[in-house]
Amino acid sequence: MPSPCDPQHAPAGDVGAALMMIDSRLKSIYDGKTSTDPEQRELTEQFVASLGPTGANDLVDGACTLIFMFMKWLRMAYEDHDKDVIEYIVPSLVATMRMMPKSVRPEAIPTMAGLLVAAGTGLSPSLWRQQYGQWTQDEMTPLEATAFLLAEHINHLTDDRDFATRLITKALSDAGTG
């Protein structure tokens, strides 16, 4: 029986805007900025505010799509080495989020772990989360952190700071020409 969380039923959202935010955060970290520059934070807040409610929902769906695509790539990479993506990714990301109490509140971590498990088993993170009600404001930063940490993990695995961004950009380009 098909799952109501099957990715084919999920909205893709604004993957481009979500990727732009994650890529910007990656570049900031790679450039040695360990905390968000106040000007960068203000620009991000203005950008999100300019989206309006529908655009903000599209951005959240886009972040969930990124998480799904990153986990799909990681699942294939780990399976090539006879490893389980959930076993290797979820504990590591949960441990990292626990070290980020200012950005990721402890009560958001189980939800983010659930998103990772959903994506790691081929389910849509956004549809999986939707079963439990509306997204909360307190889940927005952890959602961004989850997508960021996955992208950074992929970049680290490939020893290429731009690999995760190129992975998504290529997928978007292929989808547009397919």
Rank of each mutant, 00 (worst) to 15 (best):
Q40R: 10
R41C: 02
E42A: 05
L43C: 09
T44A: 11
F47N: 06
V48D: 02
A49S: 13
L51T: 06
G52N: 08
G52R: 08
G52Q: 06
A56Y: 06
N57F: 00
N57A: 03
L59T: 01
L59G: 02
L59E: 00
V60F: 00
V60Q: 01
V60C: 00
D61L: 03
D61F: 02
A63P: 02
T65A: 13
T65R: 12
T65Y: 02
L66N: 05
I67P: 03
I67Y: 03
F70D: 11
M71W: 11
K72I: 00
K72A: 08
K72H: 06
W73S: 09
A77E: 04
A77S: 00
A77P: 01
A77Q: 05
E79Y: 08
D80E: 07
D80V: 03
H81K: 04
D82Q: 10
D82P: 01
K83G: 05
V85R: 09
I86A: 08
V90L: 13
T96R: 03
M97P: 08
M97A: 11
M97F: 12
M99C: 14
M100S: 08
P101Y: 04
P101V: 06
P101T: 04
S103E: 13
R105D: 14
P106I: 12
E107Q: 14
A108L: 05
P110A: 09
T111V: 12
M112T: 06
G114D: 12
L115H: 06
L115D: 05
L116Q: 08
A118V: 02
G120R: 13
T121L: 08
S124F: 04
L127H: 03
W128A: 01
R129M: 01
R129G: 03
R129Y: 00
R129E: 02
Q131K: 05
Q131A: 04
G133A: 13
G133N: 12
Q134E: 05
T136H: 15
E139L: 15
P142C: 06
L143C: 03
L143Q: 00
L143V: 00
E144A: 12
E144W: 06
L149N: 04
L150M: 14
L150K: 15
H153Y: 12
H153C: 13
I154A: 05
N155H: 06
H156S: 15
H156N: 15
L157M: 15
L157Q: 15
T158V: 11
D160A: 09
